[in-house]
């Protein structure tokens, strides 16, 4: 595997079984994502986008095939090893923000750093990331005191605070209006360009597709299309 390859999937299949019913979410997916990718996975509902992100995020394991993330064969890892991989190397951004409601923005970001075992510097790091995302004035607010766009930016801050190599974002703009979506996507692309963090999105949002430099289309659990745009067409400004 080349050192620049972050995610490598070979024949990845995922089957969900409910009673006697089997649902094929992914059917032999072969794909690679490289360091610095800013990729969107698109496709209709039920095409397997979220399933694929869950597998790459080591939240779940494939039924068949080989999936290596940051050089780790996910199917061979224990739950604890997968938790450690997520904690130290992967950031998550969810559609519904999923911030801890009883903690402030600052504490939400600090929490991940604390889980990583960061010491006294975690507070400064959290402040730094929040400031970078234009949230320094909101650090002491709880999620219910923030707008949707602000909450999602806090979620991004939480995802990138621990300097992950890879950030997985599942429909990050689904609950945001156009303006906030643009702000968020621009911020994520800046992080990608400035810090080299790889972003993989699952999305239905054409704006995300506009910002993405690579667009992978999934249909019925298979890769239907994989297009890498040149830099001239990937700009959204």
């Amino acid at each position: 595997m080349s050192s620049s390859i972050l995610v490598e999937a070979k024949g990845v299949t995922k089957v969900y079984t409910t009673g006697k019913v089997e649902a094929h979410a992914l059917r032999g997916v072969d794909i690679e994502f490289r360091v610095g990718d800013f990729a969107a996975i698109v496709g209709p509902s039920g095409s397997g986008k979220t399933t694929f992100l869950n597998l790459v995020g080591a939240l779940d394991v494939a039924t068949d095939g080989e999936l290596r993330v940051l050089g780790n064969d996910i199917s061979r890892m224990t739950k604890r090893q997968r938790a450690d991989l997520r904690l130290n190397s992967i950031g998550f951004v969810f559609q519904a923000y999923n911030l801890v409601p009883v903690l402030t923005a600052q504490e939400n970001v600090e929490f991940v750093l604390e889980l990583q075992g960061a010491g006294e510097q975690r507070s400064n790091r959290a402040k730094e990331v929040l400031a970078q995302l234009g949230l320094d004035a909101y650090s002491s607010r709880r999620p219910n005191e923030l707008s949707g766009g602000q909450q999602q930016r806090v979620a991004v801050a939480r995802a990138v605070a621990a300097n992950p190599k890879l950030v997985l974002a599942d429909e990050p703009t689904a609950n945001l209006d156009g303006e906030n979506s643009d702000i968020l996507l621009k911020m994520m692309r800046d992080l990608n360009e400035a810090q080299g963090i790889t972003f993989i999105f699952s999305t239905h949002d054409p704006r995300v597709v506009t910002y993405a430099r690579r667009v992978v289309t999934l249909v019925d659990g298979r890769i239907d299309n994989d297009v890498t745009k040149n830099s001239a067409t990937s700009s959204a400004e």
Binding site: A83, L85, R86, F92, F94, N98, V100, V112, L115
Partner: peptide, 8 residues
């Protein structure tokens, strides 16, 4: 979510 973020 906390588990997804890596909480043991």
């Amino acid at each position: 979510v906390l588990s997804a973020l890596g909480m043991r």
